[in-house]
Structure formats: C-alpha cells, structure tokens
Simulated scan of single mutants.
Amino acid sequence: MPGPAIAVVIGSLRKASFNRRLATALMRIGPAEFTFTEAPIGALPLYNQDEEATPTPALSQFRAQIRAAQGVLFVTPEYNRSIPGVLKNAIDQGSRPAGQSVWGGKPAGIVGTSPGAAGSAMAQQHLRNVLAMLNVAVLPSPEVFLQFKEGLIAEDGSIADERTAKFLQGWMDRYAAWVRRFAA
C-alpha cells in the first residue's frame, strides 16, 4: 500500500533557487513510502475572480494535485520580509472559487532558506497566517529558519554539513509523523 502523496510547493521560480535545493534535499530524506511531487506554480495565471469559471489547464492540474495530496510541503524564500507574490497567487488560486478550496484540512509543513541570518522567518510567519485562514494544519514545531551558504546543499539535494543534515532529518521525521497523524 503506497504511503501519503505530498505536494511540494516551492515559492521560487528560479531554476538554481536555494529553496529548490532545500526541497530536493527534504524529498531525498523523506520516508521511502511517501511520494513527493512538486506542484508547479510558475504557469499559474494571476488570480482574477472574473476567470474562475474557466481555469487554465495549468490551474486545473495544480488544483487537482493539491486536492489529491495527503499533505503539502511549502518551501519558501523571503522577499521583502514576506512570501513571494507567486506563492501567494498559487495559494489564492487554490482557495477559489469560494467553497471549493483545495487546502482545507491538509497537514502541511513550512520550511525555507535565505542568505540572510534569519533564514526566511518573516515569510514563514506570514505564510502561517495565510494558511490558518484556509484551515491548513501547519506543523507547529520545530521551525526551519536556515541561513543558506554556498556549499550547504548541493543542486542534487545532498547536504554537505552534518549538523544541518541531522537537523533537517529530525524536521522531516516530525513532518512525516504529522502527516501520518492526519491520515490515520
């Protein structure tokens, strides 16, 4: 019996994104029975209520993927002390039309990295506020405010620093238990 399907929402569109590297690292160390799949947000149109009745194929696919997932993993950078606009747009798109949100009741985890000393702490706090309104059950702790330094996580997701690898494994273990709790 396959384990939970996890939709991974990466809040950066950059191919060489530090957060994409972090997402790849977490998917690599996640439980073998979990299926981690990125839910791409780059092709989603900007939210416009006038267009709710005619979603694009990319939007329909995104909503279906989130709806089918047993959990969501948000990996976000911090832009100007908040979440990137592209991530907020994806969340808004998934919450609409009214009464048809794909987010409600999903267990979620939030992580992020940034070159700044505070990692992505402010962005994560803003994201928690948005997700609370949408009835998303976010893992309360531990939190991951990872300061990114070149060489910390390779493009293939391997983690060079042993302390960071241990910390992220502990976080992933807690996240997996969180998702299993909601699946039970």
Rank of each mutant, 00 (worst) to 15 (best):
V86T: 15
L73N: 02
D156A: 15
S60C: 13
T35N: 07
T54M: 08
I10N: 10
K15C: 01
Q169T: 15
V138F: 05
I6W: 01
A176E: 12
M1D: 09
N80P: 05
R63E: 04
Q124A: 11
A16D: 13
A23V: 02
L46Y: 13
A7Y: 03
F148Y: 14
F34T: 02
L152V: 12
T35W: 02
V138H: 05
V9W: 00
P115E: 10
A25R: 10
F145K: 03
A25P: 11
D173C: 00
M122N: 10
T35D: 09
A108K: 02
S12N: 03
V136L: 04
M27A: 15
G119W: 07
R163K: 10
Q125L: 07
K15D: 11
G30K: 12
T164E: 10
A90K: 01
I66E: 06
S158H: 14
S60T: 14
P142Q: 15
A25T: 14
L134G: 01
S82E: 09
F18D: 06
P97K: 11
A32P: 06
A90Y: 06
A108D: 09
Y47C: 09
S120Y: 11
A183L: 13
I41G: 01
V136A: 04
A108L: 06
E155H: 10
K88F: 00
N19E: 08
A7Q: 03
M122W: 11
R81V: 02
A183M: 14
L87N: 12
Y79V: 05
P140M: 09
R163A: 11
P45S: 12
F36I: 01
I153F: 11
A184Y: 07
A98W: 15
D156H: 15
L139C: 08
V138S: 02
L13R: 03
A23Y: 00
A58S: 06
Q169Y: 09
F145N: 15
M27Q: 15
L134I: 07
E33P: 00
G170W: 00
R96K: 03
R96W: 04
V75Q: 00
M133W: 01
G119T: 04
Q125R: 07
A39S: 13
F167Y: 09
F34Q: 04
L44K: 03
R96Y: 01
V111P: 06
P40I: 05
R181E: 13
V136S: 03
A165G: 07
V72M: 11
Q49N: 05
V102G: 04
F182V: 10
L131A: 02
A121P: 06
R20M: 05
G116K: 03
D92K: 09
F167C: 03
S17C: 08
A23R: 00
Y175Q: 00
A117M: 09
W103E: 13
A137T: 12
A132E: 11
Q93R: 15
S82R: 05
